[in-house]
Computed example of a mutant assay.
Amino acid sequence: MKDRKAQVAALLALGARTQPALRGWVPFGDLPSEYHQALGAAVDKRLAEFADRDTRAELSALAGHPVPEAARLTTQGHDAVAYIKASSALPSPEEPSDEGLRLIQLRPSEMDVVRVYVSIAPQLHVPPADGLAEKVRTAAFDKTANRWTLRLTSEQVESVAYAFYLHACSVSVGEANRFARTYNISMRVDSTTGEIRPTPL
């Protein structure tokens, strides 16, 4: 994880310092030294490239001073930087709001499951938590991320987990499994009481 973060920081730094006058190349002297090693890993993944001997000579002529080392983003590197910037602008699934609510992001198919659950509330022995139906009704849809965004209380999050549990009983376990992995909560049998309860993973 640490190496990945260092590589991301190095790619962003390289992208921010790209010099059109040097055909996109960035002299190492313009990059913080802590990024140099991480750039080597980026080169191995074809996200960046180092200038060869002939290119360094051309860059030295263009810059008017010696350029002993230089790097630039590859086509894939430019795309990776664009993706990093876009994804970092999205809210984190674990980010709480000012009111202590939890941010939950659901795929359209997952939101459909929750809508069915709240729609049959009068028929259920374990109905949705108070306010969940209203949160579902007013949820915002992020077209870029293709996700519905809700800010829920812990009780409402447990209700969503229960909705996916019901869905798993008859249709598919995929939604319940993804929710459990992402938000660290799953409906499991309590060994003491034999009841289904929300359980942190």
Rank of each mutant, 00 (worst) to 15 (best):
D54Q: 15
A10I: 11
R46L: 06
P20N: 13
L11A: 10
G15T: 07
V43Y: 02
A42Q: 04
L39Y: 03
G15P: 08
A38M: 13
L47K: 12
A42R: 03
S33Y: 05
K45Q: 15
G24V: 09
L47C: 10
L22G: 08
A48P: 06
R17I: 04
P27F: 08
L47D: 07
R53C: 03
T18W: 05
Q37P: 00
D54G: 04
A16D: 15
A51N: 10
K45D: 15
A13Y: 02
A42H: 02
D30V: 00
F28K: 01
V43I: 12
A10T: 14
H36L: 15
R17F: 04
G29H: 14
L12W: 08
A41L: 10
G24C: 10
A42K: 00
G15D: 06
L14G: 01
K45N: 11
R17L: 11
D54P: 00
E34D: 09
L11Y: 12
W25D: 06
P32F: 04
L22W: 08
Q19W: 03
D52V: 03
Q19I: 04
A38L: 11
Q19R: 09
P20C: 04
E34V: 03
H36G: 06
V43E: 03
F50I: 00
W25L: 04
A38S: 15
A41M: 08
K45C: 07
A41E: 11
L47M: 15
L47Q: 14
L14W: 03
E34R: 15
L11R: 13
A48S: 11
R46C: 05
L11P: 11
D52R: 02
D52T: 02
E49G: 00
Q19K: 09
A16P: 01
L14E: 01
L11W: 13
A10V: 14
E34M: 04
K45M: 14
L39V: 02
A13L: 07
V26P: 04
V26A: 05
E34C: 02
A13F: 04
L14T: 01
A42S: 14
A51F: 11
S33A: 08
Q37K: 13
L31G: 08
R17V: 03
A48G: 10
A16I: 01
A38K: 12
L39W: 03
A41I: 01
L39Q: 02
A13R: 06
A42I: 02
F50P: 00
P27N: 09
L31I: 14
R23P: 00
E49C: 00
L12C: 11
D54I: 01
L14N: 02
L22T: 06
L14P: 01
H36Y: 09
L47R: 12
Y35N: 14
L11D: 09
Q37L: 15
A13E: 14
E49T: 04
A21D: 08
G29S: 15
G40R: 09
R53T: 10
A51I: 09
G15V: 09
L39C: 02
Y35E: 12
P27H: 09
L39E: 00
L12G: 07
L47P: 11
A42Y: 05
V43C: 04
Q37W: 08
A42L: 06
P20S: 10
G40H: 10
E49A: 01
A13I: 02
D44W: 07
E34P: 00
E49L: 00
R53K: 13
D30E: 13
G24I: 12
D54R: 12
A16G: 05
G24L: 08
